[in-house]
Amino acid sequence: MKSIHVAATINGDPAEFVCEPQETLLDVLRNRLGLTGVKEGCGTGDCGACSVTVNGRLVCSCLVLGGEVQGAEIGTIEGMADADRLHPLQQSFIDNAALQCGVCTPGILVAAEALLKKNPDPTETEIRYWLAGNLCRCTGYDKIVQAVQDAAQQMRGA
């Protein structure tokens, strides 16, 4: 088993790591780089808790090999706030009580940010379908949808 050396950009900063060939990006982020904001809920792409962006594209990091991201730009929840200034989505989730246990929250925020970049004014239905791959078992999604709508409105106004 030959380890692989990878250089990538993570949340805007250069990062290098060595991983085993079968190791997923999720395992690399959590276990080698300490980015435990990226959560594992299933490891099979069914829950979305491990959502990150790779070169701007929303993916499940459990379905990407660490070796695949050579030269890529990766975005995780840890890179969402601007220093101590929360992203409007993050603030909106707190203001709308859009989290209960909070374990799905990082993945949902990353996914919602990807949505608003592509579509700044999504309908409720568009939000619900875009986030269909992010399971939340606590909230019934109601306040999550509201939080995304509120943040979108605020971001359009900004």
Partner: peptide
């Protein structure tokens, strides 16, 4: 909520 910021920035520490 007092744990809100930790949870939206990915800093809250869960079991794993």
């Amino acid at each position: 909520r007092p744990d809100g910021v930790d949870k939206v920035i990915g800093r809250a520490l869960y079991g794993a």
